[in-house]
Computed example of a mutant assay.
Amino acid sequence: MTDAGVGGRSDRWMCPSDRTMSLRARLPAGWAARGGQPDRQRKSEELTDEEKEIINRVIARAEKMEEMEQERIGRLMTRLEDMRRSVLGDGVNRCILCGEQLGPRGSACVVCEDCKKNVCTKCGVETTNSRPHAIWLCKICSEQREVWKRSGAWFFKGLPKQ
């Protein structure tokens, strides 16, 4: 094997030296390098009317999508608030949602994992968590989790403003 030097080729790959890397970094090449003449000419030109129209259409479409997303999240939040307003029980002796009597004389009850209120098995939702065992949620807490999931609130650690 012959060593071809800094600029030449060799039979096997070798890690370039720091000096070689420093020299390569100064060369105007690669995806981030500024080209020569065409880029400088472009800076002095104005955007054409067609290009401006394309940009305006993209901005308008993004605004429309944002508005539709806000409406969707608003519907989810309205549905959740309606569920919260329509509770009939106390969550202790009566089902928090339908108001049915719980316990030995009434329906079977489960405790919501999130709000710790008692609900009947008709108004409860059985689901799983990160651990392999099942948990129960009332429909309000289940809907709350759905809103957090669908709106992206879990990512931003808070519900979006409407």
Rank of each mutant, 00 (worst) to 15 (best):
L80E: 01
G74S: 12
V125W: 00
S142N: 15
G124P: 05
C95V: 10
I140L: 01
C95F: 07
R94G: 00
A108F: 05
H133L: 08
T78W: 08
G103H: 01
V111K: 09
R79Y: 14
S130N: 10
I140C: 06
C95P: 13
L76H: 00
T121H: 00
I140R: 04
V87C: 15
C98W: 00
S142T: 01
Q101G: 04
R84Y: 02
P104Y: 02
L88G: 03
K117A: 15
G124Q: 03
V119Q: 06
D90K: 01
T127V: 09
P104L: 12
L159K: 05
E126S: 13
P132R: 02
F156N: 10
N118C: 12
G74T: 15
M77V: 14
A134R: 09
I73N: 00
L102P: 05
P132G: 11
C120I: 02
T121C: 06
L137A: 03
C138H: 02
V125L: 04
L137C: 08
C138N: 05
Q144Y: 11
E143Y: 05
S130D: 10
L102Q: 06
R105G: 11
S107C: 12
G99N: 02
S130A: 11
I140W: 05
H133R: 04
T128A: 14
C141P: 05
G91K: 07
F156L: 08
D114P: 01
Q101D: 07
E146V: 06
L159S: 07
V87L: 12
N118T: 07
C120K: 08
S151T: 04
G89C: 04
R94K: 11
S142R: 04
K117T: 08
R145I: 09
F155N: 04
R131W: 15
P160Q: 13
Q101T: 12
C138V: 01
L159W: 01
E143M: 09
